[in-house]
Amino acid sequence: MNLNLTLIGQAIAFAVFVWFCMKFVWPPVMQALQERQKKIADGLDAASRATRDLELAQEQANETLRESKEQAAEILEQARKRSTQMIEEARDSARLEGERMINNAKSEIEQEINRAKEELRVQVSRLAIEGAERILEASIDEKQHGQLVDKLAKEL
């Protein structure tokens, strides 16, 4: 247990080992550790970002879905409104047309009646004249008595 040169030798060996450790052992290990730490941190970051993105996307999808539902409902509503309107219109026009047709028919009938009345009157007046001729046994000059016949036809 004497103190001797070993002391110095050991100190030198120690210094060399520490130097070697500092130069060639510590930096690569530390660098690897730090890089891995960074990598893990980045990974976690990306994961949380992805989760956030997913949430956002889901929200967006929900929003879009809601909007489209609303739109569809609106379109349906419009279509229904429009169809009732169309039915209403059709009904109105049909009624008008019908009325118009009825009026036409009525006026035609009236015309027909008038014409028939006219004819009837002419025939009756002729008959009356014939009858009168027969009764009188003399012919009535149409030219002479035209005025009288016309007056008679008008009175009928």
Binding site: F17, C21, P28, V29, E35, K39
Partner: peptide
């Protein structure tokens, strides 16, 4: 000391950032 440094140096040289 040399054994210690050699082992650690080897590990340091092979050190990757992946799964150790």
């Amino acid at each position: 000391g040399v054994i210690f440094l050699m082992i650690f140096r080897k590990a340091g040289m092979m050190a990757t950032t992946g799964v150790p």
